[in-house]
Every structure is written in C-alpha cells, then in structure tokens.
Simulated scan of single mutants.
Amino acid sequence: MILKYLKEYGPWYILYALSTLTYHFMFYLYHLPQHYFLASLAINLVFFSVWTLQNYQSFKGKLLELESLKAFDDLPQGHLPTEIAYRGLIYHLVAKEAQQVLDIKREQDHLEGLVKMWSHQMKIPVSAISLMIQTHQMNKSELQDQIFRLENDINNLLAYLKYKQDDDDYRFEEISLKACVSGVIKKFSSQCIAKQLHIKLIGDSSIITDGKWLGFCLSQIIDNAIKYSSPASDIKIRIDKNSIEIQDYGIGILEEDIPRLFEQGFTGYSGHEHEKATGLGLYMTKQILDKLRFSIAITSQIGHGTTVIIRKKY
C-alpha cells in the first residue's frame, strides 16, 4: 500500500525536497544563520508529516473502497474536479455498456421469437406430409405444394438471417423489372396452376437496384396474392417507369388492418382465417425495401382484392 501511495504522490515529495534544498542553498549563499533555516524546517516537517498521515489514510481508505467496489452506486462520492470528472466518465461508460447489453438482449429475444414463429409455420407442411404418409393418401400435387411451402419458409428464414447479419449485402446494378418479376412468377407457377390462377404481366422498365433482394420482396407480395386469391381468378402486374403494381381479386384486407400490415408478427383477419401467415413476410419486405429506397403502399377492400404498389424513391 505504501508503494502505491508513493507511486501516486512521489512527485510531490520530490518537489518538497527540491524546494527545501533550494531554500537551504539560498541561506548558504547569503550567509544567513542556519539555525533559522533548521527551525523553520522542523516546524514545516511537523505540518508535512501530519498532512502525510492524513493523506495516506484517505488514500488507503479510498483505494480499499475502490478494490471492493461491486456496483456503480457504491462508487465513493468525490469532491475534487478530477474525481467528479472520472465519476461522470464512468457513469457514461456504464450507461453505454448497459444500453449495448440491452440492445443485444432485445435482438436475441427478437431472433428467438422469430425462429419460434417460423418453426411453428414450418410444422404445417411437415404435419400435412406426415398425415399423407400415415393415411397412405399420397397426392402428388398436394405433396409438391407442401414441399414447396416448406422450402419457401426455410429460404425466407435463411434470407432474413442473412439480411440481419450482413447489412451491407447489396449489389446495385441495372436490371429489367419485367425479368425480375418473371423470375418470381416462374417460382410460383405450380401454385398458380393448382389454384387455376392467371397472372397477367404488363410493361417493362429498367432500374438500378439489387435484383436479388427486390426479387425477395416481390416473392413475398406475389406469394400473398396467390395465397389469398380466389380460385380461377386473375392477378395483374403492371410495370411502369420505376414502379410495380400487383393487383389480385382475392378476399381482401380489413381497412383497419392495413396500417399495421408491416408490423412484425401482425397477421390480421386474412392471416387468421387461412392460418398460413406468420406476419413476417411484409415486415421483412418493408425493411428491405427501405434499404433499397423503395416505397410500398397497399389498398384493399374485403371481397374485392388487394393492390400493392412498389415505387422507387429519389
């Protein structure tokens, strides 16, 4: 403890010794009586010794208190400007670290809830396939549909995890919107055939964006259009300059549900009725479109269908 004390206050003692030697040298140069110097030195040393004892006890107590510190609230209240500044700095660092821990915990809870919801969603096609096997009623078309749903859900989950882990995974280049939409339509061709849906694609335009992530967003919207369309109906997709409009003639969305469609986990009336929605597709779509600088607007009417417009922002 003494060594620690000397390490912190040693320069003061060196300065005191140098000052004393300087005064002694001045007395010597001017031939002043040395007993005056010795008398003043003795009194000075008494005061200095008392200050040293008090300062050492204070230093020792403060150091022991800091070494046994377990929480920020136990930090001793300082009165010196440097102690107040250090306390403020420590408070700032503790608050910053606490916020980081809270953000990590929130992100972990979010990811855990996401995986649970998606796992529950993927149980539906697995249960359907299992039931077909148990009852020996293997319908090829239905089996393909359930396998497609399972693969699509897994791919969506992997895409979302990749999006969250690598926020810079974008490659902007000039693409054809018609080619991008056509690729998504081809992906859902078997579902369209099963429901006897006819997709009409009109127009084309070139745009600079990330084709992979835009295709992912379009797949979420077109998947919903197919999912909630009435059998043997049409889905119209119009491509204009810097915009894509997707219109279906399905069951529609309640007016009060539309403002909440992009909230995580919100399924609304349509999702509950069909028991096929996790409420994550449009949430992900909105997040990604914001990164790609696209706006998305939805209008709908129960029993008459839904229209989704994606437009490039400048």
Rank of each mutant, 00 (worst) to 15 (best):
G252E: 00
N152R: 00
N156T: 08
L89A: 08
Y170M: 05
D169T: 04
C217Y: 00
L197D: 01
L41R: 03
L214A: 00
D103R: 09
K286V: 05
P259V: 08
Y16P: 02
K70A: 00
K286P: 09
P11G: 03
Q99E: 06
G303Q: 10
Q264A: 06
L15I: 13
G211N: 09
L143R: 10
D145V: 09
L218A: 01
V115Q: 11
L93N: 12
C217M: 09
K200D: 08
C180S: 11
E256N: 06
S190H: 10
I207S: 01
A95M: 13
I2N: 02
I221V: 08
Y228E: 01
A128N: 02
S219D: 02
L177G: 02
S141V: 11
T306A: 08
K236D: 06
T209A: 03
S68R: 07
K312I: 01
L29P: 00
H110P: 15
Y56V: 13
Q134V: 14
Y5G: 13
E67A: 13
Q34T: 12
A277W: 04
K236A: 10
L3V: 13
Y249R: 06
K286E: 05
L292A: 14
V126M: 15
L66D: 07
L261E: 03
S206M: 09
Y16R: 00
K236P: 04
Y28V: 11
K70E: 07
K7R: 08
Y269P: 12
T22L: 09
M122W: 01
H274P: 15
H198A: 14
G203Q: 07
